[in-house]
Amino acid sequence: MRLHSLMGLVEDMDEEKLTWKQKLVRFFNRESVAGVVCSLPFIIGFLAFMVVPMVLSLFYSFTDYSIVASPQWVGLKNYITMFTDDPLFWQSLWVTLLFAVISVPLKLGFALAVALLLQRQTRLTGFYRIAYYLPSILGGSVAVAILWRRMFAQDGVINSVLGLFGINSHFSWLGDPRTAIWTLITLSVWQFGSSMLIFLAALKQIPTELYEAASMDGAGSWRRFKDITMPLLTPTIFFNLIMQMISGFLAFTQCYIITQGKPLNTTLFYMVHMYNTSFTYYQAGYGAAMAWVMLLIVGVFTLLLFATKRFWVYEEKMK
């Protein structure tokens, strides 16, 4: 470091003799300049594709904007309409909450249970890990959404398999308001593999000495799980909970392809409602307002989860 600044001193003495080209090279090679140059892609991207749309969005949310005509300032009208005069807003919010609150804990529960099972090293563990992780890799695709729709169709594989067990069923899983949402929930839970991998990695981090010491003190496997494994996993569970909740609130593709919100809007996700409002009914101002409300809800939910953190998430005491 000192050597470097010495070199800088020597360089400074020759400053006048340098051509403008050399000066330019030297300017760009200053650390403070190089840093900005190297971050330039992000600076431009952040401004152009995040900040500008954010500001536009806030502005549009206070306007009546049909995309084809220019926006008309209407103040808080969009927000007031949403809360007082749009049953579909409440319906979609309810459906989305229901979906997130049921599917996320189920997904994490499966992920944790299977991770604990796969902790044991056997010759087949590699295969099991692949089998459980593959659905996560494929689950976000349109192909799997289409598959899901056909599986739960009246003549689909679910009813056929039930038929093999003697239950002669022509039940319309997607057409019945009571079951339609569950097809989406199963699809979400089916993709527990990536959370499972995160849990497996966290389990590996737990020092074996802890278990050994506990065994010495006579702790059985349930005690070891309850007092060592679970507390040390809570930070990972917390992290997963937040990430999965956010993506649950914002689910779109699966609902859009499998149910389109039918039947009777019992599967109408917030994002699909927002999409329809903006691009099918051309109420872009209203759509922008919906986006801000969702951002607020996600923010409040995250804060609430953080507020519960100290009651159940184990933190290592700093010495």
Binding site: F49, P53, Y60, L250, F252, S278, A284, A288, A291, L295
Partner: peptide, 18 residues
């Protein structure tokens, strides 16, 4: 970090208009 936290779908409408 904000780009990591902020769900991209929130910007759906304004991004389209932009």
């Amino acid at each position: 970090m904000i780009t990591m936290m902020l769900p991209a779908q929130i910007l759906l409408v304004p991004q389209y208009l932009w």
